[in-house]
Nucleic acid binder design. Sequence first.
DNA 1: TAGAAGATAGGA
DNA 2: CCTATCTTCTAG
Length: 214
Amino acid sequence: MSATSADDSLARLLAEPALEVAPRLLGSVFWSGRVGVRLTEVEAYHGQGQDPGSHAHRGRSARNGSMFEDAGTLYVYLSYGIHRCVNIVCGPEGYASGVLLRAGEVVAGLDEARSRRTTSRSPADLARGPGRLGSALGIELGDDGSRLVDDAPGQEARFRLRLPSAPLGPVAAGPRVGVSGHAGGDAFPWRFSLEGDPTVSPYRAAVSRRRGGA
DNA sequence: TAGAAGATAGGA
DNA sequence: CCTATCTTCTAG
């Protein structure tokens, strides 16, 4: 039995551009220790100068350094000063593209996820939205730059990914959530989700901050 | 050094 | 619908 074939397929997938990788991550189970989340919603972000919505658009900075690492690195950042969001870096090394994990269904470690997400009112709420997903998985800022490996028997790494073994249902594509810099809104339909899944987060346009008026 | 915006969540 | 929350980035 070859234990490396599955590992190779994950590495091969993550070497592709983010726009190819993102929809193909749907249905995978992302593991953080004993908690597993089946991904139902993701977004693709491209690299420097390619994508005005990307944290890497204006080049490398203190925050986004891990986006410039090789495929399979995790990019974790603090969102709105509160939430920890997770990306899987993909594409050619140095291209700084990645896939934001936006939502999923908790399929293992339910008690642990629940204890971290005490405000959730239903199982579908546990990881519906990128901040909630990060919280349910116990992601911390110190996890930025961690490696993601294939979830194979005997694999002891904390962060693992199991690609789907069966075909998925229909995939929906649309504009990314809360991202400005879109000319008309549909210039970057790089959000992908499993159609009709209850754990997919609702769409919201980018917030325009209005404080104290004009 | 200062100001504004940001890949959100939760509550009214 | 509104606001808490605070880091990061950009301009001056």
